[in-house]
């Protein structure tokens, strides 16, 4: 599961995700361009890159919100076993719902649309709320939570989802060190349980300390592999050079011939 696995695109049974010449974007303009590679089961992968590099787009593509412009994503985990925490989740904070009820929706896979929430489920929900350090907040309306408490609430819900593949889009933005450390511990616990975690992150220190694998994205792959080898000064500078603006006059990308020299 080193560099080779990421680059070769070879088929191995232990892969959760495979990107095959994947291009994702908006209005035909690519945001992720010709991405190739596989994510092995149990990986703890950080997705890094400058703003506009296509990190969030990639996660949206994986969960299927955004159809691919070209190429494909092979997700070997059933859809219901994928959990996705979007950047600035589109949660209506004014909606009158309590922490307990919001967290309980994490049991969706078991309860579905109509299933009841029994005694055992209530215990699990309370345990999840306790695990993110929110005891005593069960009956609080979500509108009264701070940003950090809200993120802890969402992590409690992720905890209940027990997904095999967990996608986190900038989960620690605007969180203090304490909250970040607590949530990182949860991520490491998930990884220890054999779950695959992809997290979009901007804090390189945090990535170096906690994420063994990194995908450095700047629309195209700049580097993908062991974090220490990917997050080199040279790679970071190359990633930063990426041009954010769309070129309205750009020609159609010819099939089979990657437009720019493929990085990594």
């Amino acid at each position: 599961m080193e560099n080779k696995a990421a680059k070769a695109g070879g088929k191995s049974m232990g892969d959760v995700l495979a990107f095959r010449d994947l291009t994702l974007g908006y209005d035909r303009h690519p945001a992720v361009h010709h991405l190739d590679g596989v994510v092995p089961e149990g990986a703890l992968l950080a997705v890094c890159g400058p703003n506009g590099a296509g990190k969030s787009t990639l996660l949206k593509g994986i969960v299927g919100i955004l159809p691919a412009l070209a190429g494909r994503i092979e997700c070997r985990v059933p859809e219901r076993e994928v959990a996705y925490l979007p950047q600035a989740a589109e949660i209506d904070r004014t909606f009158p719902i309590e922490v307990f009820d919001l967290v309980s929706t994490g049991l969706w896979r078991r309860t579905g649309l109509f299933g009841g929430i029994g005694k055992a489920d209530r215990a699990r929900i309370e345990a999840a709320i306790a695990a993110v350090g929110l005891e005593g907040f069960e009956a609080r309306p979500i509108g009264t939570l701070s940003g950090g408490q809200m993120q802890r609430t969402l992590f409690a819900r992720l905890l209940l989802q027990e997904a095999r593949l967990i996608l986190l889009d900038e989960p620690f933005t605007a969180l203090d060190a304490g909250t970040t450390a607590d949530l990182i511990a949860l991520i490491e616990r998930w990884n220890g349980e054999g779950r695959t975690v992809l997290a979009v992150l901007h804090d390189m220190e945090l990535v170096r300390d906690h994420f063994p694998q990194t995908l450095l994205l700047a629309r195209e792959t700049v580097g993908w592999g062991v974090t220490r080898e990917v997050l080199t000064p040279a790679n970071l500078i190359e990633a930063r050079r990426m041009c954010e603006a769309w070129d309205d006059g750009a020609p159609a990308c010819a099939p089979g011939s990657p437009a720019v020299e493929r990085a990594a």
Partner: peptide
């Protein structure tokens, strides 16, 4: 019958899309 998805779609439509 539809209470749960209705509420969830109002609070967190993104999540509902991701699970159902």
């Amino acid at each position: 019958v539809l209470w749960r998805p209705l509420v969830l779609e109002s609070v967190d439509p993104g999540f509902l899309r991701s699970v159902s």
